[in-house]
């Protein structure tokens, strides 16, 4: 039972990070029908921006601000920095190809992915970086927390899970309750018709990149708080975020959240009950099974035929 609780908490932590990444894929795909393969690398850059802020504010052993403020600043700057990068990627790598065949922006996306990985490697080296989050305030993030039975739920996990959910709920509200959200949904359904209803398509697309990249930036910091990061983490994390988006129904926001959490559970329980070496296999087996037996995915749009 204790194990089960422990694995569930792991699953929720991992799953919410994957869900945040998946949302970026889904937002962009929903509007541009483009698989933004550079998205995982934006996530990686987010982790590095968080690292930079941490060092700037005195490092994990002697931070100059309280821990909660430090974490907030790290996440906020990573979100802002990644948003800027996302907008730049859209502007220079995708917009010129918007009317090109769909394979062209896809290849451009792969190019951007390599560009980000290797320019980060050039700038910061290939070695692993550790936030060393355990040193923060005598390990408060890992030792404090609350107990479920014999299992301690560390503060760090509570922070990650709850802030991820806050971000996801904000996004959902934004898309469903505000006019910007309506413009996004209109654009995703019929870009040309939306333009002719006075919606500035370029702005909507840019905004999708802002949101998606900011969420990836937050996810990057959350990821690096619990495990060391290197310039190559974007590849696998991006693949998993993409998998989560696909099994949830790419283009669907609740789908990305549920897909992300499903992957988190699959990975965590395989690690716990089978072997850590099998966890990636479990994740991608789920992808294949979905492709074979439920290609319309969990929240996939039913095809609405044109009149």
């Amino acid at each position: 039972m204790d194990d089960f609780i422990q694995y569930t908490i792991n699953a929720l932590t991992l799953g919410s990070v994957y869900a945040l990444i998946a949302l970026g894929y889904s937002l962009v795909y929903g509007i541009l029908k483009l698989l933004n393969f550079a998205h995982g690398d934006v996530f990686m850059v987010g982790a590095y921006i968080g690292f930079g802020m941490l060092n700037l504010l005195g490092g994990a052993t002697s931070p100059v601000v309280p821990v909660w403020l430090l974490l907030t600043i790290m996440v906020a700057t990573a979100m802002a920095g990644c948003a800027v990068i996302g907008v730049a990627i859209e502007r220079f790598a995708y917009r010129p190809l918007r009317d090109a065949p769909r394979i062209a922006p896809l290849i451009s996306a792969l190019g951007v992915s390599f560009f980000l990985t290797y320019s980060m490697q050039l700038l910061f080296g290939a070695e692993q970086r550790d936030y060393n989050a355990f040193s923060l305030d005598n390990g408060v993030l890992f030792l404090k927390g609350f107990d479920i039975g014999n299992v301690r739920v560390p503060l760090l996990r509570i922070v990650i899970i709850s802030s991820a959910f806050v971000l996801m709920i904000s996004l959902w509200l934004l898309v469903n309750r505000t006019r910007t959200g309506k413009a996004m949904r209109a654009t995703s359904f019929d870009r040309e018709a939306a333009a002719m209803m006075g919606i500035d398509i370029d702005r909507v697309i840019r905004f999708a990149f802002v949101l998606g990249s900011a969420l990836a930036g937050a996810a990057g910091v959350m990821f690096a708080l619990r495990a060391p990061a290197s310039v190559t983490i974007g590849f696998v994390a991006g693949l998993k975020g993409f998998t989560a988006a696909v099994i949830g129904g790419i283009g669907s926001i609740p789908g990305a959240m549920v897909g992300g959490l499903m992957l988190g559970f699959a990975e965590s329980f395989t690690q716990g009950y089978v072997s850590t070496r099998w966890s990636d296999l479990a994740v991608f087996t789920i992808l294949i099974l979905f492709m074979l037996f439920l290609p319309q995915s969990l929240f996939g749009r039913a095809d609405i035929s044109k009149v």
Partner: peptide, 19 residues
């Protein structure tokens, strides 16, 4: 007909008021 069929009746009209 190119309505935003993924949205409600009133949302269709509201989206156009965005302009």
């Amino acid at each position: 007909l190119r309505l935003f069929l993924n949205m409600t009746v009133i949302e269709n009209v509201m989206a156009a008021a965005f302009a």
